[in-house]
Design a binder for these strands. Structure first.
Lengths: 319, 319
DNA sequence: CCACGACTTGAATAAATGCTCATTCATGAG
DNA sequence: CTCATGAATGAGCATTTATTCAAGTCGTGG
């Protein structure tokens, strides 16, 4: 069965096959090496590549009781319609790693629906990690629309690009918002909003059946600052005004009320809807705690995907 | 009922958590042991248990080019509407292990449909292994119905029980067929078929939207013989008459024509439909080769899930 | 044609994992 | 109460896997 070195097989194929043999077939890397006609080292590297490239996907099938209880408690406490709690990984490991597969599974459930839906998405590191975990599916009947502009301050259009990625995976028609994330001033913002293509996209986003967003903190390491949308001074002004977090660039205070100053006057994106459609926030980790408490207090979101540690904090904090 | 020292944590939870930390979090078993507060030994056993109990599911995300090509070739050659080819595992490993996860994924796709469907199932080792890989889902809107009786010659009702298992996993209403797999004679069979509950179940099975079956060989190790439905002499008589394989107990020849002798006079199950609904056969391995060639020649099936080696054989044999 | 750098490769070795086995512990029959 | 039974445990060891490193390969641009 050993394949000879065949130029027609590409590396990904070989890696996928090695991963398959290893994880599904339970062969040792020695056996795989023999099977594929390569050295044991190479077999090991292929298996590792298969895993790190996501060619092989691992998913937990068992609902861990503790997490289920946290989910129920969060729903009750904050009046959420939907909640998923992922078991935390060890301390010191990025909690995004824990929630991404779980959130991706939920996202797949939404995309698996057969009736056409409009799905609005934010951006950010977390959302990007989630989208990377979503597996390819064929959903030309849904639409994915961005809640905010795709042009960064330096003019690049590629910062945490989420819409393109998800559209790529799902083959769904996609509607990015071709404008800067923040305008120069209120007039500039009005100008952008008046553009026909922006108008259309904003309309679509506001009609979304599902809205999925991350959340940002307002401390010095705020995504808004790191990505250059806000200076540290502007951020300070916002926090002085009470800002504890932001979604889609819109800053809110500890009660979840949107502020009417600072960046909120120039941010061009669409606020998450306040109608009865699902608004799902994906977030975990210490930096997201205060923002989450605010968003939950103000009932800005109706669904939450987080990890165990964060879930415990949220419950304890508001006990 | 096995309680551990800590009454609040059950073993499955702990195993799931260990598996999660290991496969998703990439922790070592030492770290997991520390995290969970158990010995390294126990951590290792928990991880192994999580895997063997199917708490952790591994799936290949990357379509291996070679297998895709085989799928296309099989569809073209045999006029199939549907085909999946799983990468073969090593020689000497039961090919069922290779196809079960792939077939299970396809089965889940069917059950994931939101419009109610009737799904008819055969039995057998292969199908049983596939069903075991299907993950729990909530599908009370579908119906699962057995194509054949559930009573073995020795009176036991539990041989490769597929219907109950799948019903259990999907929470779908299920319709087993409460009668022997083979009748004593043609009259006896007519008698069973006249029973109201059998009649109803048969009607349902014949209206199935999807039919999923295994396939059996007619050599001395035929499932029909091993499970005691047929004596070796009766089998010989069938093969002498040209039988090369059977589905749901119905024997057919190399051209895929059902015979009109022997077991076919007393088998009580429902033949797979010959209308235009999908009839998917799940089979791989040397023993299934001749039966598959027959079923494909006679266009008894419209879909196939098999492995690479078998796929290659089928194509080469009919080149 | 050669020099350079980026990337691959396999040997050596360190680390992690899986297995066997003797021991412990709980349970229940005598 | 004692002893047999069997499951669970952790130590020790064999196997398997991951990493490191020096050497080799390939393509590119001078």
């Amino acid at each position: 069965m050993a394949e000879t070195s065949d130029p027609t097989v590409n590396v990904d194929d070989e890696a996928a096959r090695a991963g398959w043999l290893y994880y599904s077939g339970g062969l040792t890397q020695d056996q795989i090496a023999a099977e594929l006609g390569v050295s044991r080292q190479r077999a090991q590297r292929l298996v590792a590549k298969a895993m790190s490239d996501g060619l092989i996907r691992v998913r937990i099938e068992h609902p861990i009781t503790e997490c289920l209880e946290l989910e129920r408690a969060l729903c009750r406490r904050f009046g959420l319609a939907f909640c998923r709690v992922a078991p935390s990984l060890s301390e010191g490991i990025d909690p995004v790693r824990a929630i991404a597969p779980v959130a991706a599974a939920e996202m797949e459930k939404i995309f698996a629906r057969r009736d056409p839906k409009v799905i609005a998405l934010g951006t950010g590191r977390t959302l990007r990690a989630v989208v990377d975990e979503v597996r390819p599916m064929d959903c030309p009947h849904h639409k994915v629309v961005s809640l905010l502009g795709n042009v960064a301050p330096d003019g690049s259009a590629s910062f945490y690009e989420v819409i393109m990625r998800i559209a790529d995976k799902t083959r769904a028609p996609h509607y990015p918002m071709a404008m800067p994330v923040v305008a120069k001033d209120a007039a500039d913002r009005a100008h952008y909003h008046a553009l026909p293509h922006v108008r259309n996209t904003r309309d679509l986003a506001q009609q979304a059946d599902f809205t999925i967003v991350g959340i940002g903190q307002m401390t010095d390491d705020a995504p808004l600052v790191v990505d250059g949308f806000l200076s540290v001074e502007e951020l300070r002004a916002m926090t002085d005004a009470g800002a504890v977090g932001e979604m889609v660039g819109w800053a809110f205070d500890a009660e979840g009320r949107y502020l009417e100053t600072g960046v909120n006057k120039v941010v061009t994106g669409v606020q998450v809807p306040q109608n009865d459609t699902p608004v799902i926030c994906i977030a975990a980790g210490p930096s997201k705690r205060k923002p989450l408490l605010g968003a939950l207090a103000g009932k800005l979101i109706t669904g939450l995907v987080t990890d165990e540690i964060t879930a415990r904090f949220l419950l304890k904090q508001t006990a």
